[in-house]
Design a binder for these strands. Structure first.
Length: 828
DNA sequence: GTAAGTCTCATTTTT
DNA sequence: TGAGACTTAC
């Protein structure tokens, strides 16, 4: 995609008349680059010849149907590993090769830049380089920007508007909250920024938000603040991410003629990961895809309701469930043949997901009969440290058997779980890469540098101004900034302009005035160079002349050299862009940096970031109640939350091609407190026929085996260790068994307390017999200081201190620990 | 303006 | 427990 916005004439990139379906084969339409061989065959196919184009070879009947059903609305329900991307890309190749549309007449939307990039590559591969001309293949947001650059004036922006990221937004909101005279501790900016984001995900502007929402924040000033925020964005000539969807929607709504032009333009619309669309994206799409009667609605959405895992950030599975209503006469094609995983893995995943209600109902199957097909392996460890050790051992074992580390992944529910693995792998000297996590462009020094660039390119960018006006230190502290701020606000001009004005007055102290004068001179100089200096050179000059690099050179902290390296890397990454503006736009939308793929390393990532990926071997640690399914998910969204967690489990399992290892531990430290855990209910939902309970790693001395899974299959496989005969141990087990027997025995069974221990335990809430929430009650502890107690992990000890239900205990063997009172038993 | 002390919070994350 | 934001004291 082009990186600059001013090189794009509107609607005139190709001949006025669209290519027709039945054009003369000898003369492909002007401007449609098709490779000879493929095109010829495609045309032959159209002409009734028997020969099918190459790219259709090897597709199964459903896939073929999904590729060839080009007219009318199509919903492709594509299960995990069923060749979804292949269908999507082949479909586009097919449209192009049969001359049904020019590349620029296809709108293809993805969620991530990565997906967009991959799709481009694959199409290029299929049609031989023609995708250069697919300007409308991209993320919702990048396409949104493109639309908005063209029609910015319709929503009171200039086409060189800035795109603010989350950090900028929070700072801006904070200013507004303070300007309102509100206490920004009581009403955190971050929270309100989150609310705005949620509203925009739903397509709600300040006037549309529910009264309740508006009242909920800042003593009822929610709506006002939202209005003020939008006002401020407009003044700053800026957009947040939500606006990239909201503004185009507004534009389409108020200028039907324009919308009509886009209707004519986009002859084919394709959407990937449709289950992840939020309401705003849905509205956006519907405006573009729904046509008056008689006009073609060639829209094709591809998705999998079973892989919808982004409900928490506004995705509406409903969109996919409702497709047939939105587009009457839609053809629904299910892809259920899986090409990725072995029968056992698939069987386990498919069975697990049947526990969800409200699905469209697909069942994955495979014809694969792998002679060495192994079942999903279930392991248990005493605690997370041992879990990391065991997985590390397993990985080393595989490595000895010539397996590549690149083919292995550890997928965790929450990122705090990663640490233990990293620690272990560092000890072992095992290469690993963490996917996700803090990104290049989020680093402090990068953001500072970017602020300089932004301010040069867009002098009205006050957020950038405030960020760097005193970085490096120039003696322009809070007082000066506030003065500038007030001055600028009073006259409704950008702060940089205000600064230029104010140095002509005597409002500032001479020292500050001088410093400010110098900065402004610098910016004037850089702005002049913007047009005639190469942007990489200019960037270097800015960082040098501003004293920014010197600041880090003078910095004696350990990470200063790394920061300087990052700045160099930043300049280097600018080289592939044609201009400073092009680069800035890229960064605001594509906040990722490439990873080193040459290194053979185990991947560690969250289940969320694993979606769309596949590995030979997948390790899934931490399958325990409270962590997975995550307690908070259950607390906040109840049944829906549980089902989303289950889909996450499904996503995890289906990432594995050949080997899948599940793990759960008996004890996990959460917020510094040791908690005894219960195996995830998802484990119970896996069919025996596809799961093996693997030999249990024994490495924690006499305390190695924990148990307490009531009448579950784990009992049979692994009888309790017999070395525990203390009363406390027995009682602890008894308690667990009591709790689990009631709840785990049968699915339809009632559910009472699963997490509680004894009378004083936390209370649980259930929905349809499934435990959904526990509320933590703060009943007085039944212990008193000095009591002798037993803990399953740490053994005997004496209570030193009690705070609510948290006990500080001096253990005989393990030293001082803080634990919850539910996990210790009195020793008489 | 920095350094140390205090408070708070603790899923998932893209754009 | 431990990281990060924020405050307070020099």
């Amino acid at each position: 995609m082009s990186n600059s916005f001013d090189d794009m004439p509107f609607f005139d990139e190709e001949p006025g008349e669209a290519p027709r379906k039945q054009q003369a084969p000898a003369a492909p339409a002007r401007g449609v680059p098709v490779s000879g061989g493929l095109a010829a065959r495609a045309m032959a196919a159209r002409g009734g010849a028997q020969q099918r184009p190459d790219y259709l070879e090897g597709l199964n009947p459903e896939q073929t149907e999904a590729v060839e059903t080009l007219e009318g609305p199509v919903l492709v329900l594509a299960g995990a590993g069923t060749g979804k991307t292949r269908v999507l890309t082949t479909r586009i190749a097919h449209i192009l090769n049969t001359n049904r549309a020019f590349p620029s007449q296809i709108l293809a939307v993805t969620f991530t830049n990565k997906a967009a990039r991959e799709m481009k590559e694959r199409i290029a591969h299929l049609v031989g380089g023609a995708v250069e001309g697919m300007p409308w293949l991209g993320t919702f947001h990048s396409i949104g920007v493109k639309l908005l650059r063209r029609h910015a004036e319709l929503v009171n922006l200039r086409s060189d508007f800035t795109i603010l990221d989350t950090d900028d937004v929070v700072r801006l909101v904070k200013q507004l909250i303070q300007a309102e005279g509100l206490d920004d501790k009581r009403w955190p900016a971050k929270q309100f920024a989150g609310m705005i984001d949620t509203w925009k995900n739903k397509g709600l502007g300040p006037a549309d938000i529910p009264e309740g929402d508006a009242r909920a924040f800042a003593n009822g000033k929610g709506r006002e603040l939202y209005f003020a925020y939008q006002q401020r964005l407009s003044t700053l000539n800026a957009c947040d991410f939500g606006d990239l969807l909201m503004h185009p929607i507004a534009i389409f709504r108020k200028t039907p003629d324009l919308l009509k032009e886009y209707h004519q333009r986009f002859r084919y619309i394709l959407v990937d990961e449709y289950q992840d669309t939020n309401t705003a994206q849905y509205m956006w799409l519907r405006l573009l895809a729904q046509r008056p009667k008689g006009e073609p609605q060639n829209v094709c959405c591809v998705g999998d309701d079973d892989q919808s895992i982004y409900g928490w950030r506004g995705a509406e599975v409903d969109n996919i469930l409702r497709f047939e209503k939105d587009f009457p006469g839609a053809k629904v094609i299910k892809l259920e043949r899986n090409y990725r995983s072995t029968a056992h893995i698939l069987g386990a995943a498919a069975h697990l997901i049947t526990h969800n209600e409200g699905r469209l109902g697909k069942t994955l199957f495979t014809d694969r009969r792998d002679p060495d097909d192994i079942k999903v392996q279930l392991h248990n460890s005493w605690d997370s440290e041992e879990e990391a050790r065991a997985i590390g051992d397993e990985i080393e074992q595989l490595q000895r058997n010539q397996h590549k580390l690149n083919d292995m992944a550890i997928l965790v529910r929450a990122s705090f779980q990663m640490r233990e693995f990293e620690d272990r792998f560092v000890t072992l000297g095992l290469n690993y890469r963490v996917i996700g996590g803090p990104r290049f462009y989020e680093r402090l020094e990068i953001r500072d540098a970017m602020a300089y660039f932004r301010l040069v390119a867009q002098p009205a960018d006050d957020l950038a101004f405030e960020r760097i006006i005193n970085t490096p230190k120039r003696g322009l502290g809070d007082t000066t900034v506030r003065a500038l701020h007030d001055y600028a606000r009073a006259r409704d001009i950008p702060m940089l302009a205000a600064a230029a004005d104010i140095i002509e007055t005597d409002e500032l102290k001479p020292k500050a005035r001088k410093a400010l004068f110098d900065v402004i001179q610098s910016f004037r100089r850089w702005q002049e160079r913007l047009e005639n200096t190469s942007h990489t050179e200019l960037a270097e000059q800015i960082l040098e002349e501003s004293g920014y690099t010197d600041m880090w050179k003078a910095d004696k902290t350990a990470d200063a050299p790394a920061r300087l390296d990052n700045l160099k890397e930043l300049i280097r990454s600018m080289e592939s862009f044609e201009s400073m503006r092009g680069f800035l736009e890229h960064v605001s939308l594509v906040m990722d940096a490439e990873q080193n793929e040459n290194l053979d390393a185990v991947s560690i990532m969250t289940l969320h970031s694993a979606k769309g990926l596949e590995f030979e071997t997948v390790f899934l640690p931490g399958w325990e109640e409270g962590l997975f399914p995550h307690q908070r998910s259950l607390d906040e969204t109840g049944r829906a939350g549980l089902e989303e967690e289950r889909r996450l489990a499904y996503v995890g399992l289906t990432r594995a091609k050949r080997r899948c290892h599940l793990w759960f531990v008996n004890n996990r430290r959460i917020h510094g407190l040791w908690q005894s855990t219960i195996p995830s209910r998802f484990l119970e939902e896996l069919p025996d026929t596809h799961v093996d309970v693997a030999a249990v790693e024994q490495s924690y001395g006499g305390y190695g085996r924990g148990g307490g899974y009531g009448q579950s299959r784990f009992d049979k496989a692994e009888p309790f260790a017999n070395s525990h005969s203390t009363p406390g141990w027995k009682r602890a087990q008894q308690n667990r068994n009591d709790a689990t027997r009631d709840n785990w025995g049968s699915r339809s069974g009632h559910s009472v307390e699963r997490i509680g221990y004894g009378e004083a335990g936390p209370k649980s809430r259930t929905i349809d017999g499934e435990l959904v929430a526990k509320s933590t009650t703060t009943e007085p502890s039944k212990f008193k200081t000095g009591d002798r107690v037993f803990h399953m992990k740490f053994g005997n000890g004496n209570i030193k201190m009690i705070e609510g239900n948290k006990l500080t205990i001096e253990f005989d063997r393990a030293g001082e620990k803080r634990v919850l009172d539910g996990f210790v038993e009195p020793v008489s």
